[in-house]
Amino acid sequence: MSPDIFIKATPIVLQGLQLTLIITICSFVLGQILALPLGLARQANSPLLRWPAATYTFLIRGSPLLVQLFIIYYGLGQIPAVRNSILWPILREPLYCGIIAIALNSAAYMAEVVAGALKRVPKGQTEACISLGISRRHRFTDVLLPQVYRELLPNIGNEIILVLKSSSLASAITIMEITGVARAFTARTFAPFEVFITAGILYLAIGFAFTFLFRLLERRYGITGTRTPAPEASA
């Protein structure tokens, strides 16, 4: 190991930082947006909503993200209808495919968590709302959702770390984010330890920053005393 290469590797690895952050944040936000309707559907009374949502989460959670990424990036192009559709300019780009695949994956895991939180909301609250004459819409937006999301803050903080780690898979579809540039630089310098350790430190720093941010959010908005223990890995 030479300190020289560490110094040389730092700016190179930092080149990937922007893409890693773009992929992480976009996939995370998109995943969270999709997770709510999916989670609601998982908990719905109608089997017409429940079954498709259950099938979706089962299939996504049952197969590797890498397969899903390849289906979207390499697979969809095989279908002429996709190539001729207006979506093709998006699905042709590895960056968009990476973001979509990671978001769809994250949404499936998050939907299960959301569904679980919805299930834990006491029945009495619905009854209380009805007896107070609160409309269905406000029951949902002002009573149910704030509770669910305040309770889920630790899980959401955990999910963004998982999405950050997943973003490294984007290097498999030619995107030069941190892992991608690190691998390319290793091939040139033959100094894997220096380069990958630098990349690893960068990932830890980003993860630490996200954790810190969510600690602040939790302190501000979290429900005290309900802090769920860190969930197990769910990659």
């Binding site: 490294s168 894997p192 630490f208």
Partner: peptide, 21 residues
């Protein structure tokens, strides 16, 4: 703490290329 914060792919690369070196 460290391993849980790192992408698995990075660890695989580190072991594979590092081991080769």
């Amino acid at each position: 703490t460290v391993v849980r914060g790192l992408p698995e792919l990075l660890i695989i690369f580190l072991v594979f290329y590092g081991g080769t070196v």
